[in-house]
Design a protein around this nucleic acid. Structure first.
Length: 439
RNA sequence: GGAGAAAUGGCAGAGUGGUCGAAUGCACCGGUCUUGAAAACCGGCGAGGGUCACACCUCCGGGGGUUCGAAUCCCUCUUUCUCCGCCA
């Protein structure tokens, strides 16, 4: 079995998916898109480069007109000062013409630039070389596995049955007040939920992540900054009255803290953790696998976010993976780590490790964390840069990971820790819960 | 929600129609001095596009307008502050 360590040795690609990068590395981009099984990758890149060419040509033409116009304006000023009004008036007529030209060109440039931007927004991140090729989750690579899968007693139940049996989660009540996918946690269920949030936050803080509390609604600029827009348009709950979206993950508000920011090199690394509820419409995903806590419209998650120097981002990714491992170890849950293949990799990520906990009663793996390096993909949209040693501004790297997503951890806990006498709370959580058993 | 004020480089803060992409201070980078550091002094230092490199173009909260010419005048939007109202 391969170790996840390997990522730290990878050389990151700089300036990913800025137009200049595509111009200089056309083939790399096409190859990357193909790894994601994107149909018509070559055409898409060609079209983008074409749009770029057109934009630059228009820009150059406009610049020349403006330069001429600026020159004349200066001369007019001088003539006026010298009292030579006739000469000035003569030149004025000339500038009128130029003005019309520049107006038309500006409009054209605007169109060209928008066309280019629309194309650029369609391009996902280029996968890191470690990303295995493949199209479905079957092709994900298992890189690590740890923890014994417990032998459950005869009559062990899936978590939704346990939730009912001990009256700790009420799905019907949630249906009544909101709808499917909005459970109500009760009694020890609510307390356990709160205990987990605090435990995760404490673990993250101890590892150096500064805690932040952020808004749960974000504006459009933030959605574009981290790449949820336009890619995940229909997946977020949209508040039309104020043109805001409910966050699908804390990644959005926390990373956007650094939108339009110019850092200094010694500001790195920046580490944040935050707890938020997450809202996802999950349009189109129904069926047997969404039962109970497996897939919800609202769920709680504690997130970790890092802003890193490009040279350090893959070491940072390793650190995040190790950190999540530690937490799962402390909880005593059996888990495995997958390296996502090209087809399963998110739009914005260059490399992603998914953590899955084994749900014994359901006999299946549940995704509970996703840790990714976005390299410069988000930074490019966020305009998150730093001044490098040469005094030039350069895009930073952003990373994030769940540490951890609550519902499936809870599902795993309930199922794996059940005994005929009740659910035994992992030792590390007892101080947070104030009880050691749910019965 | 009503009234008023404001928005300028990493930060602070000048600048009210032409030589302003923008004084000054701080921060930052380089140098002199010093055993080293601090202080002092000298020099450099906004961002983006474009170019082999220059040239050149754009940007003073966003958008639009007036003008030959706008950081500066007008309209509009957003945000912030102060006062009033409402309120967890």
């Amino acid at each position: 079995m391969q170790q996840t360590r390997k990522a730290g040795l990878i050389k990151p690609t700089r300036s990913m998916l800025q137009i200049a990068f595509i111009r200089a590395h056309r083939e790399v981009v096409i190859k990357g898109l193909l790894k994601r099984n994107i149909a018509g990758a070559e055409t898409l890149v060609s079209k983008t480069l074409e749009a770029d060419e057109i934009r630059r040509t228009t820009q150059a033409t406009l610049d020349a007109v403006l330069a001429e116009s600026n020159k004349l304006s200066k001369e007019i000023g001088l003539f006026f000062k010298a009292g030579e009004h006739q000469k000035a008036t003569l030149l004025k007529q000339k500038t009128t013409q130029l003005k019309e030209q520049s107006k038309a060109l500006t409009a054209q440039l605007q169109k060209n630039a928008t066309a280019l931007q629309d194309l650029l927004y369609q391009l996902p991140n280029i996968p890191n070389q470690l990303v295995p090729s493949g199209s479905t989750e079957e092709d994900n690579e298992t890189v690590f596995e740890e923890g014994a899968i417990p032998d459950l007693f005869e009559g062990a139940l899936p978590h939704w049955e346990l939730a009912k049996k001990y009256d700790i989660i009420d799905f019907e009540l949630g249906n009544k007040i909101t709808g499917a996918g909005f459970p109500v946690y009760k009694g020890k269920g609510a307390r356990l939920q709160r205990a987990l949030i605090n435990f995760f936050l404490d673990q993250n803080t101890a590892a150096g992540y500064q805690e932040v509390q952020v808004p749960h609604l974000v504006n459009e600029a933030s959605g574009y900054g981290t790449g949820q827009l336009p890619d995940k348009e229909g997946q977020m709950y949209h508040v039309t009255e104020d043109n805001l979206d409910l966050i699908p993950t804390a990644e959005v508000p926390v990373t956007n803290l650094y939108r339009d920011v110019l850092l200094k090199e010694n500001d790195f690394p920046i580490l944040h953790t935050g707890y938020t509820p997450c809202f996802r419409r999950e349009a189109g995903s129904y069926g047997a696998h969404v039962r109970g806590l497996n897939r919800l419209h609202q769920f709680d998650k504690v997130e970790i976010v890092r802003i890193e120097h490009p040279d350090k981002s893959y070491q940072a990714l390793d650190l995040m993976v190790d950190h999540v491992k530690d937490i799962l170890r402390a909880l005593g849950l059996p888990y495995r780590i997958l390296r996502l293949c090209g087809g399963d990799l998110g739009f914005t990520a260059a490399l992603t490790y998914d953590f899955e906990v084994y749900s014994t009663a359901q006999s299946r793996w549940l995704e509970i964390s996703s840790v990714s390096n976005f390299e410069t993909f988000q930074a490019n949209r966020l305009k998150l840069r730093f001044k490098n040693k040469q005094g030039k501004s350069e895009l930073a790297h952003t990373l994030n990971g769940s540490s951890l997503a609550l519902p499936r951890v809870l599902a795993g806990l309930l199922e794996n820790c059940q005994t005929p006498e009740g659910i035994v709370i992992p030792e590390v959580l007892v101080p947070y819960c104030g009880f050691d058993k749910i019965d």
